[in-house]
Design a protein around this nucleic acid. Structure first.
Length: 456
DNA sequence: GTTCTTTGTCATGCC
DNA sequence: AGGGCATGACAAAGA
């Protein structure tokens, strides 16, 4: 609401026209220019986060300037791109981390709560959302009703992680956590201890206690559940927010099921099912794929970012195996990390393979349909031809019958009497001779002719 | 609320 | 043996 609709729409259409993902379609200038008027100092980078998401919407829901019928939920898939945008803008959020972060948290508190995750080195003492910032953020939320809170959460966490002196080796240790589905296969060490640490570190994660942050607790707990039930694993960005000790606990109830989004958050002892909004994140991510196939890759992108690998998911998937192996060898990664990257590569390969397979299947079906149409046309043609031949044969038989009658009408026996066609028949010999024979002899003559033909 | 469609993922077999 | 590919099956989400 703080931006004029025309500008939003122009950015929308820009993204649409390019057909590129946001990384390339959106420049930082676009993002900050969009949010420039209401921004000030460190708040820029904070409040600007959701809007690029808005502008990254797919073609759905964008009808005309001034119409706010955008499908925000489909625009959430590019959190990584936003993260990159944030990382690329040091002035926006790094100038005054202590002042900016709390406001950032505040900005997303109503949306998600895992913003309250304690970050190493961060001072949360001054966490006291101001009424002003809250009001401002409420206006932003009006445009973000459908946005997925989890995505914001991830975005924030990613930016926090990077702002706090990101250390690849530390991340390497973090990734000691079993994460990949294959490998991960699951010893899951995410931990009950991590739950404890998370909950105790800021008292923001109490299941029911912290007033105003109960949603945070739900966020954590349900994301944890998501990891346990749905096979979701903690995003690497989230891992960045956890200390090593958080990740060194005993295995809990993580199970690898179908969705391997690498959510690794611990599962609190809760029997409640996933909240709708907790699943909504998954929904948005998956269905954004309908409009952007690259979105799925975005699920793995944070991992590559966190590992500080100079390769994108696309590159990881498409690079030759030798190059891939050399990358793994040079990156000083743990077995778990290697397993994670291999999973990313495997999934990427299989994703493309599945797409190709479906295309082929579709092509085969279309080809078979064409064959069916062609064969049907051929059948109709043959049927028509058969009818024509049948008609022609009928005419020939009629002519032969007439000719037969005409010949008999002209024949006379020895006494000059007409020959009865009911008693006699014309018989054509092999030598071309024509004989008038009694009908009772025609059958034997036919047999003789057949024998002669067989002899020949 | 049900059904269909789309997409990602896994398991498996083959090369 | 390991990697890639192909494909059936399944799950999840939106239409």
């Amino acid at each position: 609401k703080e931006c004029c609709p025309e500008r939003l729409y122009s950015l929308f259409t820009k993204d649409k026209s390019n057909g590129d993902e946001m990384d390339t379609a959106w420049s930082l200038e676009d993002i900050f220019h969009l949010m420039a008027p209401p921004m000030e100092s460190s708040l820029e980078g904070i409040s600007s986060r959701p809007l690029p998401l808005l502008c990254n919407s797919s073609s759905d829901g964008v009808d005309a300037p001034g119409q706010y019928s955008m499908n925000f939920s489909q625009a959430i898939s590019h959190d990584v791109s936003l993260r990159e945008a944030m990382l690329s803008c040091p002035d926006a959020s790094r100038q005054d981390p202590t002042a900016g972060h709390p406001q950032t948290q505040d900005a997303f508190l109503p949306l998600n709560s895992s913003n309250a995750l304690p970050l190493p080195g961060m001072d949360w003492a001054g966490f006291s959302p101001s009424t002003e910032s809250r009001t401002r953020n409420l206006t932003a939320q009006d445009l973000l009703l459908d946005l997925d809170e989890n995505v914001f959460d991830e975005i924030n966490l990613i930016s926090f992680a990077t702002e706090e002196g990101f250390d690849p080796m530390e991340v390497s240790q973090l990734f000691e956590e079993p994460d990949s589905d294959s490998g991960l296969s699951l010893n899951s060490s995410h931990s009950s201890t991590s739950v404890t640490n998370l909950n105790s570190s800021a008292s923001l994660c109490d299941d029911e206690g912290a007033v105003g942050y109960s949603s945070d607790a739900e966020s954590l707990s349900h994301r944890g559940l998501e990891g346990a039930v749905g096979g979701h694993w903690l995003e690497s960005s989230e891992l960045c927010c956890m200390s090593d000790s958080d990740l060194s606990g005993e295995p809990t109830l993580e199970h690898i099921l179908h969705n391997h989004t690498y959510y690794l958050l611990p599962s609190p002892p809760s029997s409640e099912p996933l909240l709708p909004w907790a699943q909504k994140s998954h929904t948005v991510k998956r269905n954004s794929n309908l409009n952007d196939q690259d979105t799925a890759l975005g699920q793995d992108k944070p991992h590559t970012k966190t590992l500080c690998l100079p390769f994108s998911v696309d590159e990881i998937v498409s690079m030759p195996v030798d190059s891939f192996n050399s990358v793994l060898a040079k990156s000083f990664l743990t077995d778990t990390q290697v397993s994670l990257l291999r999973d990313i590569r495997r999934r990427g390969k299989n994703r493309v393979a599945a797409q190709n397979c479906r295309k082929r299947k579709l092509d085969v079906m279309l080809s078979l349909e064409e064959d069916v149409c062609s064969l049907q046309a051929q059948r109709e043609s043959l049927t028509l031809e058969r009818a024509q031949y049948s008609k022609s044969l009928h005419l020939m038989k009629q002519k032969l019958h007439n000719l037969y009658r005409d010949v008999f009408s002209r024949l006379r026996d020895d006494q000059g009497r007409p020959v009865n066609p009911n008693l006699y028949a014309l018989h054509c010999g092999q030598d071309g001779s024509v004989l008038i024979v009694p009908k009772e002899l025609t059958s034997s003559l036919k047999k003789d002719n057949q024998k002669e033909k067989e002899r020949k």
